[in-house]
């Protein structure tokens, strides 16, 4: 049990150090498919947040009763149930957004980030840590989705959340909202993320007591 690590640490790691998108490169399907506008990205992030947190809660609560031979099927049943709940709720409450997200809501079932967290974390830790980890991971996922969606919408449409940002002279880069734009933006964001992490590491090495910090960072990852 990870009693030595604070719950806060479990939450915060998903935002940056173990960010599911920028570091683990998981959940690429919704990442590339629904981020053509910021609002789609945020709703997809919220849907994933709900599914991941509730699934992690259930999996860690019932972990003693989940036989390991059938655990994957049980995780999928749990995840699929919550995805169905999200699907119908969105259809009832936000039909316009549901239409835009289309097939990608049901596909949350197959988001490897969610199943990955159950297998790698929730099934091995207490409820509190599992929920904290899920909150952090899905928040990190949401941040990644939002940054991709915002960049693509600003460049591809010249707007953010549907509000026009530039004058009428702005010529939208249509490619940014098409699939190639998703790959381009994701590649550039990953580049930036890795560059920044490397810079930070170099900085820490330079500043002070060096190897210990570098090793400490490695250990938790």
């Amino acid at each position: 049990m990870a009693t030595d690590v604070s719950a806060y640490e479990e939450m915060i790691k998903g935002l940056w150090r173990d960010n599911p998108v920028f570091v683990q490169v998981l959940g690429m399907c919704p990442m590339l498919a629904v981020t053509n506008s910021a609002i789609n990205a945020v709703v997809m992030g919220l849907a994933t947040f709900f599914v991941l947190v509730t699934s992690s809660f259930l999996v860690s609560s019932f972990k003693q009763w989940i036989p390991k031979q059938v655990r994957i099927s049980l995780y999928v049943i749990i995840i699929a149930t919550f995805v169905t709940v999200v699907d119908y709720s969105l259809l009832a409450m936000l039909p316009a957004i549901h239409k835009e997200l289309g097939a990608f809501i049901p596909l949350i079932v197959a988001n490897c980030m969610i199943l990955g967290r159950q297998e790698a974390f929730a099934s091995k830790h207490g409820v509190k840590y599992a929920v904290m980890d899920a909150v952090g991971m899905s928040a990190g996922f949401m941040i990644a989705l939002f940054s991709l969606g915002a960049v693509r919408e600003i460049l591809g449409v010249g707007a953010l959340f549907g509000v026009d940002l530039f004058s009428a002279n702005f010529e939208p880069w249509v490619i940014m909202i098409l699939p190639p734009g998703g790959f381009l933006t994701l590649g550039l964001l990953l580049l930036f993320f890795n560059w920044f992490t490397e810079r930070r590491r170099q900085f820490l090495i330079k500043v002070a007591d060096v190897d210990k910090i570098a090793v400490g960072v490695k250990d938790n990852g």
Binding site: Q69, V70, I77, T81, V85
Partner: peptide, 30 residues
């Protein structure tokens, strides 16, 4: 193994049917 799968499947089914019935009217109305 069979029982745990069956129980999970049953609970999941009940939840899915419940949410379907809860939202059915709103979705139809929309």
């Amino acid at each position: 193994l069979v029982i745990s799968m069956a129980v999970a499947g049953f609970i999941s089914g009940v939840i899915i049917i419940a949410i379907y019935m809860l939202t059915f009217d709103t979705i139809k109305e929309n």
